[in-house]
Design a protein around this nucleic acid. Sequence first.
RNA 1: GGGGACGUAGUUCAGAUUGGUUAGAACGUCGGCCUGUCACGCCGAAGGUCGCGAGUUCGAGUCUCGUCGUCCCCGCCA
Length: 601
Amino acid sequence: MNHADLLERTHYCTEITHLEPGTTIRVAGWVRKRRDLGNLVFIDLYDRSGILQVVFDPVRNPDLVVLAQEMKRESVLTVEGTISMRPDEAVNQSMKTGRIELIASRVKLHSTSRVPPFHLIGDQEVNEELRLKYRYLDLRRSEMFRILSVRHQTYQVVRKFYSDNGFIEVTTPHLIRSTPEGARDFLVPSRLYPGRCYALPQSPQILKQILMIGGVDRYFQIVKCFRDEDSRADRQPEFSQIDVEMSFVTRDTLFRIHEELMAVVYREVLGIEIQTPFPRMTYSDALVDYGSDKPDIRFDLKLRDATDVLAGSGYQLTEDAIRNGGGVRGVVYPGGAGLSRKQIGDLERIVRSRGPGGLITFKTGDGGELTGSPLGKHLEPERRLQLVQRFDARPGDLICLAAGGFEETAWALGDLRLEIARRGNMTGDSLKFLWVIDFPLFEYVPQESRYQAMHHPFTAPLAQDENLLDSNPALCRAQAYDLVLNGVELGGGSVRIFREDLQCRIFKALGLTKQEAENRFGFFLEALRYGTPPHCGIAFGMDRLIMMLAGTDNLRDVIAFPKTLQAACLLTNAPSPATSEQMKMLGLKSLIENSGKKETT
RNA sequence: GGGGACGUAGUUCAGAUUGGUUAGAACGUCGGCCUGUCACGCCGAAGGUCGCGAGUUCGAGUCUCGUCGUCCCCGCCA
């Protein structure tokens, strides 16, 4: 019985548990599964809320049974029926609607479906390539809707929070002028100006600062950003940021506001209370203690320096490192003395990939004695004891040492520290927020023999380091900060430069001539001359924040239509070749014979 | 730009170390039976360019080279 007038639902499938048995309702959705017992037919109907069992009973409605028996998976229906309590023996405890069912009385079959190319139910892992190609089917899985829902709630909470705090959301353009430094730009060729291009924003950085000069005072935006760099599991070429800028406030006020933002988001979205204020750590301490600029402080495992203990041992690896101005640092692997040679080899590979020539490991015995490294032979009992004490190593632990320059050993041991914690399941389920502050203003690029801005070139130096700008830029620290959660960088920002003279000194330290600075940032330098308020800002990776909230480790899962690692969209087959007409209109000529790789179908 | 893993039925995977008859399983699909199922059950059937292309060989899913695609990492990502 196809009832043409049946379309709109009165309830979502699972939002009926409060209704009285006997109530007539209409639900609409997809056939997830059919169980045909010959005459009696059950259909699991689902919509975004979940599953409801619909009963087609030959006694009450024999015509409907025939229809139900032909119903394919993923067919689309509206069903009218009455809510009924299930017989006691037929109650399904594992379903939200397991105590009730819908006795169908009228049904409209809206559309049918081909057999889906992958299983929409069950725990079976599905090839992500297929999921992305048939994203609309993937999105029908309840887990995907849950994540979309978390994302939606986060957007609402964030917008309300800023609005309540006097921020206004301003939309900035996506077709902007390319400003060098930073990531590779996505370019959009101009038709009206053949040969010229717009760039898609890597972030609205300069525009939001100009909004401050424009007196907006408190700005925010949830905005798409584009960076033409290689992807990672936690990086997409196109991503969303919560972008913020505010005038006439200190860094501490910005911190307080955003601690509150995180608290509100976790409270409203997940019902979790988090503790504020967040601890702060300097970049320098982070590197020394954790070998990272985004330390995961859910566990301790601090790095320790053992240079003084080992100096003069006569062991070549460590002696060379110390002679070359480096040192020996290490981290302890609790209970790691039982590791096999192969397992230790895996650890060594992590260290080597960051630079140090090798990993020196000592197993701590019951009596505190050390075994397992040729370095041991070079150490007097006194020094061995010092080493054990330096690392607070207990019997059964493994002391892991790396020798080399400070930075390379720090980063290497930082990676090792994370691996040790991962293997030891040491992270628990806590949420550890952390501000990392006082980043270096510049980093040296050896290949180009010049400095480049670590954050971006509009970041203010620490006041007390300003005099280092000309004399020793490498030591100059910035008023830049990152917010880190459980070792994941959620966002970062800085106090900005608002004086033209200081901005010019920065450009000079970056090796830009007056002319070059004028060419690249002239409009911005001009703006700075017209009364710029002291201001600061921050930007959060919206997708990463949602990853954390949703508890997934794949950024693609929190984006409705993500790109692959090769920056392709498998659903739409973007990018696609431009037609010769399009190219001509834009004044472009391709150097590639067939406009690149073949398009897949 | 570099390194690594993977690609076999619609899906998830075996088969590859040792090249050799007709490439298997589960789920799904199709047909039949079944009135309380919910991983329904029972009986039966169909379904394969072993990603693609070369090469070695009497013979290649298996070995070699190339290529395409997906994932992971380094570089890169102010």
